[in-house]
Design a protein around this nucleic acid. Structure first.
Ligand SMILES: NC(=O)c1ccc[n+]([C@@H]2O[C@H](COP(=O)([O-])OP(=O)(O)OC[C@H]3O[C@@H](n4cnc5c(N)ncnc54)[C@H](O)[C@@H]3O)[C@@H](O)[C@H]2O)c1
Ligand SMILES: NC(=O)c1ccc[n+]([C@@H]2O[C@H](COP(=O)([O-])OP(=O)(O)OC[C@H]3O[C@@H](n4cnc5c(N)ncnc54)[C@H](O)[C@@H]3O)[C@@H](O)[C@H]2O)c1
Lengths: 181, 181
DNA sequence: ACACCATTGTGAAATTCTTCACAAAACTAA
DNA sequence: TTAGTTTTGTGAAGAATTTCACAATGGTGT
């Protein structure tokens, strides 16, 4: 597949595809293009997707449930290995093959199960504390759904998901469009 | 509040804050900084957040339920005015003050209720069709949770939420970090 | 009134990102 | 072989974004 076709599929330009790929090495064959199989494998390895990751869910609420039941995570190698919630009603509940645990066990479980990623799906007022505790327990990355900016050491990457902002971005684009017209 | 303090809170630089704001006008007072109240109001108006928006949910599944029950949308002026699902079991169910509707009514309801935003929370294989139908019915913007790139006319903005990619971005950063060390 | 201070708004400089354009490579067909 | 075709990988050019730096301004204190 040529950079031209990759670009068309990815809403970008052929030059951009080639420059981006060349940043990581030289994967194509001149006159022929890129081998899809090889390219997939190389990119998987570069992105760290050629392995599985041990993930904990913090906050067994509505968003937490949707995430937990979403099959795409499991199939991409993100394995749920623990679930935490502070609600005494929820602690002990079975979620699939998991049991909801108390935050009291947080550090111990994170370390014992060698958990690398934490998904924070709890209210904003508990998120900073749990983030810090996760970092101290050796977590490598955090996916944060709580609408606050987490303060963590730079060695631990954080990805924020803020759905209100996504809607607001839409509102802005619509409002802008009206102004042009 | 000075551009310096705004920058610190927004993880950017004072010069960037001033350049960005100056793009929309001249809001500050030299020697003093920006009036938080005034700035909030002006930005709300620029972003189109000083009004409410009529929103429909397409796909009353796990993610749809979490979104529907999330209070932050309502409180920011995003009003749920219709819910659609193709599952006969779900059609007719009450969700809060709403009743789940059949996609057969889609165009009619969108037009009658003057719906401006659509949130697609249905499986990927139905998403393109519903997006196109929404556009034809006059929708102004789409928030898409299905893991496909929607093909819609450029006048209709689309925001994609792809949570698998968020996790993959974390994996990449962690993998990169290891390489540096 | 006047001096002094803090901070904006903005050209100009610096940096980063994207596109251009083409020599080098790899294949195909004669 | 050899000529022709396609497409990469990449310097160089061009465009966009970010940072610098400072005159202009508005406020405060005396
Ligand atoms: N529901 C959505 O669509 C949505 C969208 C965007 C962001 N969010 C954010 O995601 C987070 C969770 O939202 P939700 O709708 O699932 O809320 P929810 O109230 O349904 O669930 C939150 C859960 O976290 C638990 N919890 C509270 N403190 C805890 C702690 N210290 N440790 C462990 N668990 C704790 C609660 O017991 C509850 O079960 C919130 O920060 C919310 O702002 C939600
Ligand atoms: N659950 C998650 O955490 C999550 C995360 C990221 C993305 N997604 C994506 O969001 C979408 C929904 O995920 P989910 O987990 O809520 O799935 P789900 O299966 O729980 O819900 C999907 C719902 O859509 C309905 N539906 C199917 N076709 C329809 C149509 N043509 N019109 C209206 N409704 C229709 C189904 O009846 C079902 O109720 C999927 O595309 C999924 O990939 C989900």
């Amino acid at each position: 597949m040529s950079s031209e076709e990759l670009a068309a599929r990815g809403q970008t330009t052929a030059a951009q595809v080639r420059k981006d790929l060349s940043h990581f090495g030289s994967f194509g064959k001149r006159g022929l293009g890129y081998s899809v199989d090889q390219l997939r494998d190389r990119l998987r390895s570069i992105l760290g997707l050629d392995r599985s990751w041990r993930v904990a869910l913090v906050g067994a609420g509505r968003i937490g449930l949707a995430l937990f039941e979403y099959p795409a995570f499991r199939s991409r190698g993100y394995d749920w290995v623990a679930i935490f919630d502070s609600d005494p009603e929820k602690i002990g509940q079975a979620w699939g093959d998991q049991v909801v645990r108390s935050p009291d066990e947080f550090e111990k479980v994170l370390q014992d199960l060698d958990i690398e990623l934490v998904i924070l799906a709890l209210p904003a007022d508990g998120a900073q504390e749990m983030a810090m505790r996760a970092v101290d327990a050796g977590v490598r990355g955090i996916l944060n759904f709580a609408p606050i900016r987490l303060n963590v050491p730079p060695k631990v990457p954080v990805e924020d998901v803020n759905l209100v902002m996504e809607l607001e971005a839409l509102s802005f684009q619509i409002t802008q469009g009206e102004r042009d017209a």
